[in-house]
């Protein structure tokens, strides 16, 4: 999987590249539109992560070119610009997703995987981890091929875990991923504990391994060991 990061802010570029590379992606990064065009002309990418405010112009310009010349490439806009118009015009021009800054790297990973799933061919609707099988299309979870009856928020949490497997995920990023803007006004995200406890109980009851590990006060890790 090849991903191109177009971002002029060095530190954001560096962290995104590091996180995605750590999950097995082949990541390249450029700092402006001109370099991005050069890269796109030579290589084929599964997804482009595109900042809108770049030193030599707006990311929306290159978005048009990507959609016209490389229709198989997915685009996620990463923008700090707080404007609904930008979001609308970005999505209208064919961007697959719009991720406002600041974002969590886990969230970026979830969006990226979702786009790659949508864009690739047959069988890609199934996400597997050991005895777990998640049908993304039908929003169903199977443990050893038996429906585990996990739905709603618990399903969202589990998919987020599996998408970011073997990584420590902060509680904030889980809450924001699943409850979105509603978490903005929360004082504490302790409620997450109840949901994760329920999810764990359901999975282990079906004979699934207990892969969700609590990492002190900061978050959780979904991993084999």
């Amino acid at each position: 999987m090849k991903v191109l990061v177009v971002e002029d802010e060095a530190e954001i570029r560096r962290t995104v590249v590091q996180y995605l590379s750590g999950s097995g992606y082949l990541v390249e990064s450029v700092v402006n539109l001109r370099e991005a065009e050069d890269k796109l002309a030579v290589f084929e990418y599964d997804c482009v992560l595109l900042d809108l405010m770049l030193p030599d112009g707006s990311g929306l310009d290159i978005l048009k070119k990507i959609k016209a010349n490389y229709p198989q490439t997915g685009v996620i806009i990463l923008s700090a610009k707080d404007s609904i118009n930008d979001k609308i015009s970005g999505l209208d021009l064919g961007a697959d997703d719009y991720l406002p800054k600041p974002f969590h790297l886990e969230e970026l990973m979830a969006r990226l995987k979702s786009i790659i799933r949508r864009r690739s061919f047959a069988g890609s609707n199934i996400v597997e981890f050991k005895e777990l099988k998640i049908d993304v299309e039908a929003r169903q979870v199977f443990v050893n091929n038996v429906d585990a009856q996990i739905s709603g928020k618990e399903y969202d949490i589990l998919l987020f875990f599996v998408t970011n497997k073997n990584k420590v995920i902060s509680k904030n990023s889980i809450a924001e991923h699943v409850w979105g803007d509603y978490t903005e006004r929360l004082d504490s995200i302790d409620f997450l504990y109840t949901h994760i406890k329920n999810l764990r109980k359901k999975l282990t009851a079906m004979g699934c391994g207990d892969y969700i590990k609590s990492i002190y006060s900061v978050g959780y890790k979904f991993a084999d060991i």
Binding site: E11, T15, D82, K167
Partner: peptide, 24 residues
């Protein structure tokens, strides 16, 4: 307003992303 909000968000994003990496 858009710019100042933008100027705030970029450093916030940098801190956030570095924390996301740090906890690994």
């Amino acid at each position: 307003i858009e710019n100042s909000s933008h100027e705030f968000k970029t450093p916030l994003a940098i801190i956030n992303n570095h924390l996301d990496l740090l906890i690994q």
